[in-house]
Write a protein that binds this DNA or RNA. Structure first.
Lengths: 204, 204
DNA sequence: CCCCTTGTCTACCAGTTGGTAGAGACAATG
DNA sequence: CATTGTCTCTACCAACTGGTAGACAAGGGG
């Protein structure tokens, strides 16, 4: 059936376009041209531009959830689990950068779809927070407010992966090698931030 | 002279609009309506929408540079200096959130103005990196690649301040109180990440 | 063979986009 | 008073926006 294939192609190309140019910056005409199809074909599969966007967001949420499930299934503990997640996110950034671009677009203030992604991501968030809490109890991760710590982690990881332009203007060309370096440095940073304090910490 | 006042008002309102809705999402008509003025008045002061955007970016770069100069002038050392910068960024986020919104817009991949902001920000970057390097030498900050560490810091701080939507969907309403909490948690996070290792560090 | 569904197309629409041309209000200056 | 430069306006425009209406080709089932 050629039809559902078209639908799939629209979703994939739209993901790239929305992630690259944002919702407002993407026109159905441009998207159609990129697909080698008429705009009306897009509107056949998705009743409106906004519906298309929502479908793309849902699709992406599934992808993200799968990626994290995969990591969670490995059942690692402490910082090894954190490392596994960082590795996974970086892999995603390398292979499907559009996904991160879309996340960036959706999580912008004033975004009408933020809650949509939020609802799908919420279980992952809860699971991650519980994980942090357990690991704190077990003394494998520095004690602090788990929800807040998770927010710090999220910021650091997504920022490092997303702020490509910042990195470029500052001299890091986003080659594969520099990506590896960034991941390594980020992990060192996170390990330092998460490792429980030693018996004799340095004073304030 | 009412004229230069109009120019100022356009710049301020445009900053808010671009920061809120992005470049593509902001129309000159809407901007003019918000200003209580005709679109052509905007085009009198700025030859095109893009020129306006560049002017706003330049203006914002000056603001940012001033803010950091202010902190740098205080001449603090080690983590106190880092703390002062974080405080300053959070103050900016509370009083003029549009500025960070614009930063987010400009630093998006594919942004045609990224280099424009980059050039103006570069001296600040260099100064910050030198600072980190000096403090590492002095043993007040954990040793690592200063440029990479700076990137990690940037990601964590800007992320924490910018990802309002993420925080909202996860249950943190962006009240003033929660902002204070976020800042405190972020600082604890950064202190843990930056404090030099103790004589007897935990194993890998 | 006809009919109905599926999928893509052409043709079109009203509203919005960034931008141009030029008139008029106004104050300062001669 | 006349002139000049500054500033904002009305009136347009071509191109593009998301979206509608409907034709048409292809195929499957009765």
């Amino acid at each position: 059936m050629a039809g559902s294939d078209t639908r799939r192609r629209i979703l994939d190309t739209a993901l790239a376009a929305f992630g690259r140019d944002g919702y407002a910056g993407t026109s159905l005409d441009a998207l159609a041209a990129e697909l080698g199809v008429r705009k009306q074909t897009i509107l056949y599969w998705f009743p409106s531009k906004f519906d298309l966007f929502e479908a793309v967001v849902d699709d992406t949420a599934d992808d993200l959830a799968d990626a994290f499930d995969e990591v969670a299934a490995s059942g690692l503990a402490g910082l090894d689990q954190v490392q596994a997640i960082v590795d996974r996110v970086f892999r995603l950034a390398v292979h499907r950068p559009q996904v991160l671009g879309l996340v960036r677009e959706v999580t912008r203030p004033e975004s009408p779809t933020a809650s949509r992604l939020g609802v799908r991501i919420r279980p992952l968030y809860d699971r991650a927070r519980d994980f942090l809490m357990r690991e704190m109890e077990a003394g494998r991760i520095r004690r602090s407010d788990p929800a807040m710590l998770l927010l710090s982690l999220y910021s650091a990881v997504v920022g490092m992966v997303t702020e490509l332009e910042v990195q470029r203007t500052v001299g890091f060309e986003p080659t594969l090698r520099s990506t590896v370096m960034r991941r390594r440095e980020l992990m060192r940073f996170l390990r330092a931030a998460l490792t429980p304090e030693n018996p004799a910490p340095a004073g304030s």
